[in-house]
Structure formats: structure tokens, C-alpha cells
Write a protein that binds this DNA or RNA. Structure first.
Lengths: 252, 252
DNA sequence: GTCGGTCGGCTACCATACAAGTACGTCAGC
DNA sequence: GCTGACGTACTTGTATGGTAGCCGACCGAC
């Protein structure tokens, strides 16, 4: 109910309802506001957001293509559980693309590029001081995106971003440990330093180990929150939530 | 009219209408049956395929996400022209992922893996002898997919495939020169040989130059068929085809 | 008590209707 | 002949109705 009106209010900026719904849902899923395994019904979402089923449905199809939801025809749509295979695949994609871009960036990077990266670093430190986790996540995303932009392959970022989404869902659970943030920022700084110095191989190794650290976090999370993960390849019975209906009645 | 009935006939195999339409359209676009710049109207396609606008529209949204069509609200949907930037981006993605996978495959590859790859090589040679271009394209795709599968990252293939689609549209025009096929097959063989020998760096270099050759083909095509390419970043007036309506009348 | 059939309610899928907006041909005015 | 306003026909976007299919609870038979 809270965001029902806000959706159409922001519609003026050239984006249509489908894109807005898509962004909202993606944000909720990646931010774990919608937990893996939970049902996302076309009808419920349409009612909540104050739009028709069509843009909601189209958004869900896109999210399914990104691997963030699983659509079971005539059964329901569910936020996908984190699959070992998908996480490993996402890590592989991210590492390959970001490191390849970095290797090309070395040499290309001008003083202006480095300066802009350092601005992001100080902003990250500020977010760390204020324990602003959400802000740090956003700055982290921006840092990695800009790093790819320096190489001239900014248009490849959406692919990385999509892979990153799979990893981020799990990371949200781990990062509350704030000492992690300063560690990550230190690694960011090391990458920028080596980039500026033009040390190709060490920059590559530095970024790679940074990304691997993020990856290892996910594995730790798996031990803590197994319910968010899926061991099976095809958990073909997502189990419909039969309690929802009675709860809705109680609400009235 | 020809494929109108065939669509629903093949529907039994678990795939819904949306997926079928998506496959048909993707195939037509990548196979250049639908040329870059041509209009793809939701209504026309729905009528031709004998379905409603809904699955057609949803397919187009997915194709837009893949970068194969451009949707201009209230104006029309058009097969995207080949953009310099997109091609370069696709090449970067493909090269980074395939080479990274190959590096991991070296050492992992068993005798069985190598044998299966060689089966594909002989099949490619057979396609070459028969000048079966379409068959070669399919075998080429399968070869590269299996190469990634050896590394254990088969699930990353769809990403490569999507990038590859941008390149393939242009390649279709160049490959009629059949001497190219034997050259490409030779490079494939070299990669397999080096993979089997466990020579990581040379295998990487070999695959990379192979992919670069494909990339350079695209640039040659640009000179021959500039109308398929787009110089501008935002060619915001795709020009509606006003002759279509009168032609449709003449058809009746 | 346990098993098997039935039935209600939910789901996503597809089809259709309406709305908002753009391009292009036409025609009046100059 | 040229220019500019207008209207029609088209486009995609959104809303809504109807259908097939699946789940899960209920209930009767054994």
C-alpha cells in the first residue's frame, strides 16, 4: 500500500510501467526484501502496486530470464533459491569479464579516470564510517562499473551486473559484519593503485582475489542460511503457501 | 501463412507459445531472414503465426533485452541494426569468457572430452565438403558450447550465446566464401590439439586469434553492407514503411 | 485409521478491448 | 509550387476477461 501511489508518480521520466515494476521487483529480490522461495503472484503484485497484471507479468518474465525468479506454469512464480551452480557460474562470469576489462584498462587509464575512482573510494570510506551498508553497496556497484568503463567496455557492464545480482543476494546477509567493509575498500584501493602504476599482472591478481573473497562469503552464508539455497537441480514442488488465504481473511 | 499451423502443432513438447515464438523470431533475426532495420509489428506477427499479440509481445520484450530488436513506444519495433559498439562489446564478452573457460579446461579435459570434440571436428569437415553452411554454423555453435562445458562452466554458455548472436548476424553474410570454413576448422583443430597437449598459453592464444578472425570478418562486412549497420548512437527515426499497407491490399 | 476420489480455489497463459501517442498523406491557404 | 495544419491509420502500452491445469483440503469407502 505504501508504494502504490509512488509508482505512477515517478512515471514521468520516460520509463513505462513495465520498467518501473521491473526495477522495483529486482531491487526487492536482490535486497532480500523478497526472500528466496517466497511466492510472487501476478495478482497480488498488481493489486499492491496499483497496476494491471500485464506490466507485472512482463516484468516477471524478464526476471525469470535473469534467473531471479522461477515460473512454474499453472502453479506459481517464486523467487529463485540460490543455486550452487548459478553462484559458481556468476562468479566465473564476473571474474572473467572484470579481470579482462582491467587488463585492457591498464595503460588506457588517464589521470582523470584514476581521480574519479579515488573519489568513489573516499565516498566508500565515508559510508563505512557511518555504517551505511546500503550506501556502500551502491558505491561498490558504481566502483566496479566505472572500472569497466575505463577499459572502454562499459556496455558489457549489464552482463556483469546480472551475474552480480546472484551473488549480491547472499552477500546482503554477510555484510552486517562491518569490519568487512574496510577490508573491501582496502582491496579497492590496491586495485586502483596498481592500475595507476600500470602493473598489469598484479592489478589482475589483486582484483581477482578481491572477487574471490566476495565469493567465499557466499559459501559461509550457505552454512548459516541453508533455507535460502537449493541443493536440488529441479525442486519441482515449491509448495504453495496455504496459510496466506486465511491470513488475508483475518486481515479483513 | 506457411508456419502458422506448425507453431501450435509443435507445442506439445512442454514449451509454451511465448517460448516458441521467441525461438522462431530469434532464429529469423540471427539468420538474417529478418534484416536489420526492418519493422516487426506485433499485429503482423501475431496474424502470421496464428496467435494473439500477447506471446508475440512478450517475445519481443525478451529480444529487446538481448539487443536484437529496438522497441520505440508508439512508433514501432525494429530489428536492431548492427552497432559498432555492440559488436565490439559482444566480441569482448565472448573472448573473455571463452578464453577464461579454456584456461580452466586445460588439465580438466579427459580423453572422453577430447574425443567428443574431435567428433564435432569431423562433422564440420563433412559439412565443409558438402558446402552445408547452415550445418556448419550449427556445428560451430556446438563446438564452442562443448568447449565451455569441458571447463565445467556450461551454465555460462547462454551469456556467450547471446553475445555471439550479435556477431553471427553479420557473419552470415561473409561465410559464403567456403574456403573460410576449412580455415576455421583448422583453427578448431589446433585448439583441441593444444588443449589435449595441456599447453595452456598457446591454447589460449590460438582460440583468441580464432575469435579475432571472426571479429575481423564483421568489419569487412561493414564495408559491403553498410545499410545493416548503424553509425549513430540513437537513430531515432527508423522510418515507417508506408508501402506495406498498399502491398497488403494488393495481396487481397 | 488409512486410502482414494472429488471439488474448490489458485495459478500462469493466452486472447481481446481500450487508451495514448506518433507518422504520414492530404488538403487548404498563400 | 510551397508551406503548414489536420485527420486517419498505424504503433506500442495497459487493462481485463476467459481457459487449462495444478495443488491441497475435504470426505466417503474400506
Amino acid at each position: 500500500m505504501t508504494s502504490a501511489e509512488g509508482l505512477h508518480a515517478a512515471r514521468s521520466r520516460g520509463r513505462n510501467t513495465r520498467q518501473l515494476v521491473h526495477e522495483v521487483l529486482r531491487s526487492r529480490i536482490v535486497g532480500l526484501e523478497l526472500e528466496p522461495g517466497s511466492a510472487v503472484s501476478e495478482n497480488d503484485l498488481a493489486a499492491e502496486l496499483g497496476v494491471s497484471r500485464t506490466p507485472v507479468r512482463e516484468s516477471l518474465i524478464l526476471l525469470a530470464d535473469e534467473g531471479l525468479v522461477d515460473i512454474y506454469p499453472q502453479m506459481g512464480t517464486f523467487v529463485s533459491r540460490i543455486r550452487e551452480r548459478d553462484v559458481a557460474s556468476a562468479q566465473f562470469i564476473r571474474e572473467a569479464l572484470e579481470c579482462a576489462a582491467l587488463r585492457e584498462a591498464v595503460g588506457k587509464a588517464g589521470a582523470r579516470d584514476v581521480a574519479e575512482l579515488r573519489v568513489l573510494l573516499t565516498a566508500q570510506e565515508e559510508a563505512d564510517r557511518q555504517s551505511d551498508m546500503e550506501g556502500f553497496f551502491q558505491l561498490d556497484e558504481e566502483f566496479h562499473a566505472r572500472l569497466m568503463a575505463v577499459s572502454g567496455h562499459a556496455s558489457a557492464w549489464p552482463v556483469v551486473s546480472q551475474a552480480k545480482a546472484q551473488l549480491d543476494r547472499a552477500r546482503r546477509l554477510s555484510l552486517p559484519m562491518t569490519q568487512q567493509m574496510s577490508l573491501l575498500i582496502g582491496q579497492h584501493r590496491e586495485v586502483v593503485d596498481l592500475l595507476e602504476a600500470g602493473d598489469l599482472d598484479r592489478a589482475d591478481a589483486s582484483l581477482r582475489s578481491h572477487l574471490r573473497l566476495v565469493f567465499s562469503d557466499v559459501e559461509k552464508i550457505r552454512a548459516k542460511h541453508p533455507e535460502l539455497f537449493s541443493d536440488e537441480d529441479a525442486p519441482l514442488r515449491p509448495r504453495r503457501d496455504s496459510a496466506r488465504r486465511t491470513a488475508a481473511r483475518g486481515d479483513r
